[in-house]
Design a protein around this nucleic acid. Sequence first.
DNA 1: TGTATATGTAACTTTTAAGTTACATATACA
DNA 2: TGTATATGTAACTTAAAAGTTACATATACA
Lengths: 106, 106
Amino acid sequence: MPTPMLDAFQVIADPSRRQMLQLLTKDSLAINALAENFDMSRPAVSKHIKILYTAGFISIQDIGRERYCILKQDGFKELQCWINNFDKFWVSKLKKLETILNNKAK
Amino acid sequence: MPTPMLDAFQVIADPSRRQMLQLLTKDSLAINALAENFDMSRPAVSKHIKILYTAGFISIQDIGRERYCILKQDGFKELQCWINNFDKFWVSKLKKLETILNNKAK
DNA sequence: TGTATATGTAACTTTTAAGTTACATATACA
DNA sequence: TGTATATGTAACTTAAAAGTTACATATACA
């Protein structure tokens, strides 16, 4: 079966998951090390990790009995794309405004 | 009382709300006109609008008995900022990789 | 002024997400 | 080989989100 597709926006809606991604910009971390930063049970963290992994926000490298989490760009792409769309909107809106002002100035 | 702060990420986690924002890039729309695009009750749309408004994703202009929804940049800023952070991460990661490769080439 | 239209809100139901505890498994190491 | 460590998963509970219906209010217009 195809991986049950997760919605990237849904995935980053959770503040804990966002914080996990933030932590991973500093350093790759094993799951337990990551869990120490959170005030929730380890299995809860484990679940979040699975979600981040499935949605392509992190990759995981097994070293011995540890699993290191590493940021992965894939998951971010949809978000970047969406935001870019609106960035374009603001820019074009600004340009239209300029045009109007220029015409008035004439 | 201070407006009960909404989490921008939470706000755009809902696919319908994202679609509403998309529609509003084409044109400003009154709430009922907007609602026609969705397969849900009008009050449900009304609720979404309120959320988008409170979180600063739209402003609302009352014209007679209609309320026009207009995109507003405020709500997007936090998202842009967050994404930018990771963009920077990828860029710097790439630079580090280049440095390593250059040193090897020497 | 009476009726239709555009909208907001309250009360409720249903679904989904996030957390917990308890238990299973695999690796590391004395 | 036995014990500690790192992790995954199942079963359950709780809390929050999203939807619905019913009703209230305000503007527009014949």
